[in-house]
Amino acid sequence: MDGFLLTTTEEFLNWNRKSSIWYLLFASACCGIELMQTGGPRTDLDRFGAVPRATPRQADLMIVAGTITYKMAERVRLLYEQMAEPRYVISMGSCANCGGLFQSSYSVLKGVDKVIPVDLYIPGCPPRPEALADAVVKLQAKMMKEKYLRTVRA
């Protein structure tokens, strides 16, 4: 045998998880354009194993890209609840973080963390694709630190 690798089961599982972050193909405003850019050739989310999924049932990550109105907020919560655990949320851009430019509007939710728990916030209006790629890398780092076997329910 030329060489061998040593690891723990937990680390191995976490490595698998972080190498296949499937995110929900979901955008509610102009941040969605940057989200598409991030999947494009420059930042290329695919190289992290992050690919868009068209259904929340197959998604690990929800990137909330854009303004959320109260009408949409209830749909966002539903989509989040449909995702299988463990699930993660990135709040992308000022609107998803706090309502942003539209926070004085009667119909805009002042931050998506009012309806679902958020793991990472990206500032910017909109954030550049590099910022979103960085958030995915940070999420990978977060996943690696988790005690997956102890947190997940059998």
Partner: peptide, 9 residues
Amino acid sequence: EYHGMSHTR
């Protein structure tokens, strides 16, 4: 508020 979502932050 709307459906329990507060309008203030």
